[in-house]
């Protein structure tokens, strides 16, 4: 008797094989699908739009200024009465500040990554890694004024003839800014190296340091290079720090002590409003923009490929 009632109370209805509200379900599913497609297309269309605008204005620019002048002239003075359109001063400014940044960030970033993944205890790692990543979250305008008002005066005590605007100070600060990018991504790569490989090396009688430098780091190398490439791309495109602290004087030089101008800083300078739409000055914005886009795009693509290769290897 008890058993019977119990059975009744949990008996589940037979499921009919014909779906009752098929139309509504299909409509809902379709709607959601198109919503998702739309969201993913927005960013693709934006990118394509940017590329088209850049390409169009760049072509317009080269109708007026010959490519030869753009590539061979060593002066960049589009806002002066006597105009020169040689890209080299801006390109050198960008390359110089980025190179200084990488020279600073590479050793610190990679050694921090090695420490975190191979030496730090799990507890230290859990505290230090997010703390490092916080560095990347500091607004770049703050870094910019830090470079101009603190690092430059300090460096002036050390380096004679250091101008108030220069490339070494923003370069160093930019390097500090990208340390977390390198250390965090490299740490991910090093940490992802299977424990079995470390044990394999220990089982051969390897000590810790040879194991790290001959087995672990080489295995993680493509992931580390991907991280560094991404960091370079970030440095090339960095705007605020160099605009504030590097000066705005396009100069054909690799001297880190004098004021220069980077491509990004030039775009800010013109974009702030002196150039009327449609003029040649206005078009220079897009030429420089295309150059910058091309450089960072190639870097990012390369980084992606390396990252893919790293994941394949592991």
């Amino acid at each position: 008797m008890m058993d019977n009632t119990h059975k009744q109370s949990i008996s589940i209805e037979r499921i009919p094989l014909e779906e009752a509200s098929r139309g509504i379900r299909l409509f809902k599913e379709g709607l959601i699908k198109y919503l998702l497609v739309f969201c993913s297309l927005v960013s693709i269309f934006t990118t394509v739009g940017i590329i088209l605008v850049l390409a169009f204005e760049t072509i317009e620019f080269f109708k007026v200024v010959p490519l030869r002048e753009f590539l061979l002239d060593t002066e960049w003075t589009p806002l002066f009465y006597e105009k020169h359109f040689g890209i080299w001063p801006l390109l050198l400014g960008t390359v110089l500040t980025s190179a200084i940044a990488i020279v600073v960030a590479l050793p610190f970033g990679i050694f921090a990554a090695i420490y975190l993944s191979e030496f730090a205890s799990e507890r230290v790692r859990k505290i230090v890694k997010p703390a490092l990543e916080l560095l990347a979250g500091v607004p770049t305008v703050i870094y910019g004024y830090f470079a101009l008002l603190i690092v430059t005066p300090f460096l002036q005590n050390v380096i004679p003839n250091l101008s108030g605007f220069n490339s070494i100070s923003p370069g160093i600060v930019m390097g500090i800014m990208i340390i977390p990018l390198i250390s965090s991504l490299s740490e991910d790569a090093i940490y992802a190296v299977p424990q079995g490989l470390r044990e394999g090396a220990y089982a051969l009688g390897g000590r810790k340091l040879p194991t790290i430098f001959r087995v672990v780091i080489p295995t993680a190398s493509s992931g580390i290079v991907a991280a560094v490439t991404l960091a370079i791309s970030r440095a090339l495109g960095e705007t605020m720090i160099v605009t504030i602290a590097a000066g705005q004087q396009p100069r054909f030089t690799l001297d880190p002590r004098v004021p220069i101008e980077t491509m990004t800083a030039f775009i800010v300078q013109v974009g702030l409003g002196d150039a009327p739409t449609g003029t040649l000055e206005y078009k220079t914005l897009f030429v420089v923009g295309s150059m910058l886009f091309l450089m960072t795009f190639v870097m990012n693509m390369w980084s992606q490929r390396l990252k893919g290769r790293f994941q394949q290897e592991i």
Binding site: G196, E199, Y202, G205, P218, E313
Partner: peptide, 16 residues
């Protein structure tokens, strides 16, 4: 460990 070698369950040649 230089006198006592070890082979593991999962083959682990060094990928690099």
């Amino acid at each position: 460990r230089r006198r006592v070698g070890m082979v593991f369950q999962k083959p682990n040649p060094f990928p690099s």
